[in-house]
Design a protein around this nucleic acid. Structure first.
Lengths: 196, 196
DNA sequence: ACGACTCGTGGCAGTTTGTGCCACTTTGTC
DNA sequence: GACAAAGTGGCACAAACTGCCACGAGTCGT
């Protein structure tokens, strides 16, 4: 290991792999948007992305996982935002701040997200559902909260409930966002998050 | 149609079908508990339940659906309880009451539920997860709430948030219940549901 | 009671998803 | 340039589903 390369340039291999993965996701999303999730086979994606089926399953353990990529990015973003929140904030404040940042991210990437939401909503796939996906991260998120405050042991139920409620609020907002109609989404997000 | 039979006895066909379905679920749960979800094939279940694979998929669209049966029962129970709630209760009160009844149901059927939770928790299957399963019913539940109060049109976000929060609380409680440790689960449920 | 009709069931062939194994090529290291 | 490490592709194969057709057990009309 030379270890001298900067964090951004991780060697040719890494870049190639990342590029191949990204294009596969793009191609797949395009096909899904065009024909619908079920009508697109993995073989189709592979043909369009010019990779072997065997390779596809090395990138994504499941067909659903290609579709779930945006949801996974959201989850990662949320975790990162939470870890980066100022220390002086309490749990609820930090979580709210992180969710607001996630909201900005979603709104900024609106067109791409719109495609994802539409496709994922119509698909029979469950893992890809951003709402459920986020809920599935509750435990991980709670642990991140505890780590932030140097807490140890299992989280008490009040903390877990707080996290669950915050995510519930975010999901309600996401629902409204997907439905459209809100003139100022971010203001609406603040409103929903502030509801006691 | 003779239509003379009581509501309970719906003809031999219905009864046979219900019996076959029930035994299939039982057999499947037994195998899952014994070897784990992934290590049991549909063919195994069919052999043990003495039905043809083709028949299996007529009862359950997916292998996951056999495992999800208890979760589906919970969802159905919740919907029914909500519909049966006294009219004079407001939305939040009715929902809380329904959740309390669901809680009693879960606690009463403890041993069976314990098996389900253990198997479902360890399984790679997602649909079967009771937590997610319940979240997936949010929309349906909200509609039931509106119907109860003769409301029309799409639910406003405050109502949806209220439902989402109540379910979040129930899930937190379920989590505690599965973990064990609570001496009086139903009292704990009241406590969690009452948390503002 | 008897025939017609419906519906649940089983078998078969075929598609699709996902995996283990091995050979081949590309990349990074010395 | 030699060597190790990692990505890639092809093959065979298991397991999850699906469409089709045939058979037989319930059910209904007369």
């Amino acid at each position: 290991m030379t270890e001298r390369a900067g964090a951004g340039t991780e060697g040719l291999r890494e870049r190639k792999r990342a590029h191949s993965r990204a294009t596969t996701v793009d191609v797949a999303m395009g096909l899904f948007a065009e024909r619908g999730y079920d009508a697109v086979t993995v073989a189709d994606i592979c043909a369009a992305a010019e990779i072997a089926p065997r390779t596809f399953f090395r990138y994504f353990p499941t067909k659903e996982d290609v579709l779930a990529e945006p949801a996974r990015q959201m989850a990662a973003r949320l975790t990162a935002a939470l870890a980066a929140a100022p220390e002086e904030l309490d749990d609820a404040g930090a979580l709210r701040r992180a969710l607001r940042e996630l909201g900005q991210y979603v709104v900024a990437d609106r067109t791409r997200m719109a495609v994802f939401f539409r496709v994922a909503g119509a698909a029979s796939a469950v893992r890809a559902n951003p709402f459920l996906h986020l809920s599935g991260r509750e435990r991980q998120l709670t642990e991140e909260l505890l780590r932030r405050r140097a807490g140890v042991g299992p989280a008490d139920w009040r903390t877990r409930l707080m996290v669950a409620r915050a995510l519930a609020a975010f999901r309600v907002w996401l629902d409204d966002l997907v439905a459209g109609g809100e003139a100022d989404p971010l203001a609406h997000l603040d409103e929903v998050l502030a509801e006691r």
